[in-house]
């Protein structure tokens, strides 16, 4: 179970990333955030965000146009 959830469905670039960054800021190191997004750019953008910030993509899936990520804070 993630420590926080970001529902970014319906939001376009760059808001899914921005909202996720805000949620990550609010949790402690090692805790996780679950993100739901419909922006088709999400898969690539979250990979880039993970690479730059060092926060880890623990789980990633897509179901009916909804991308789901579980991210662990560095």
């Amino acid at each position: 179970m993630a420590n926080a959830t970001v529902d970014a469905k319906g939001l376009n670039c760059p808001m899914p990333i921005v909202k996720t960054a805000q949620a990550i800021k609010a949790i402690a190191s090692g805790e996780t955030v679950e993100v739901l997004a419909t922006d088709p750019g999400s898969a690539k953008d979250f990979a880039a965000w993970s690479k730059t910030t060092g926060n880890v993509i623990v789980e990633q899936s897509v179901d009916g146009g909804v991308y789901r990520f579980v991210l662990r804070k560095k």
Binding site: I17, W49, T52
Partner: peptide, 9 residues
């Protein structure tokens, strides 16, 4: 600007 801040830059 907002994305860059989100990337921790």
């Amino acid at each position: 600007a907002s994305t860059s801040a989100s990337l921790g830059m």
